[in-house]
């Protein structure tokens, strides 16, 4: 790892990139570079083969068709599956979470196969979950914004990322799912900008050891403000 740059794959931003999701790649790259770890972002576009040699794979949010296309593409080009099988880090939000599951149903009721990297199944809920969300995890509270219709059930092959304090998440009081180095959540926003502990958890998985502290007062301030807002303590 020391001799070459960490390669962060931004997977299918042209069909899954609705919510500023490329920001997660920017955050990971910067947090590594600021600590002296060279890192680059590699975009993998729809229609192109998916390399299995990247260190991190990031999947964003999208609409039903984009999600369907992404699932088809990633099943056909098996690079992501092969990479995950050898322990590469995968981080997905929203539609990306659903694509990583065993199956999902879109708003029109049709069922689609996912990649099966997480033991989750998703179906459409009754109403859209839109708003600030706070999730308690062993690494502390996560803050984010969610906007999705999906209701996700986590099976025994994965565990939820955390418990929802405010908001909807998976729909049963939990949010997200984790199996090995594959981690997914309904928080977009992008999630890693608001939650440096989560970003550093992924970086630790990539580099093999927890990264050094990286004090960023701007991020602390935003977290304080958003956690307060989620409690209803702020006017906006």
């Amino acid at each position: 790892m020391a001799d070459s740059a960490v390669r962060i794959g931004l997977v299918l931003p042209d069909v899954l990139g609705t919510y500023g999701d490329s920001g997660n790649a920017v955050v990971l790259r910067q947090r590594m570079r600021w600590r002296g770890v060279p890192a680059d972002v590699v975009e993998v576009h729809y229609g192109d083969p998916v390399p299995d040699s990247l260190d991190v794979y990031l999947l964003g949010g999208g609409e039903d068709e984009g999600q369907e296309l992404a699932a088809d593409h990633l099943r056909e080009h098996a690079g992501l599956r092969r990479a995950a099988a050898r322990g590469a880090v995968v981080f997905a939000v929203c539609a990306g979470l659903q694509v990583l599951g065993t199956s999902f149903r879109t708003g029109d009721g049709r069922r689609h196969d996912g990649l099966g990297l997480l033991d989750v199944v998703t179906g459409p809920g009754k109403r859209r979950a839109v708003g600030e969300i706070v999730v308690d995890t062993p690494a502390g509270p996560l803050t984010g914004f969610e906007n999705h219709l999906g209701v996700t059930t986590v099976g025994p092959g994965s565990r939820p990322l955390g418990r929802v304090r405010t908001g909807t998440g998976n729909g049963d009081g939990t949010d997200g799912a984790v199996t090995g180095h594959v981690l997914a959540t309904y928080l977009h926003g992008p999630a890693l900008a608001r939650n440096p502990a989560l970003a550093d958890l992924l970086i630790g998985w990539v580099t093999g050891s927890p990264p050094a502290d990286l004090p960023l007062p701007e991020v602390d301030e935003l977290r304080r403000e958003r956690l307060r807002a989620a409690r209803g303590g702020a006017r906006w």
Binding site: Y19, G20, D21, S22, G23, V26, E132, F145, G189
Partner: peptide, 9 residues
């Protein structure tokens, strides 16, 4: 819009 994720675009 209450979602500020667009700032990252």
């Amino acid at each position: 819009g209450r979602d500020l994720s667009w700032l990252w675009d």
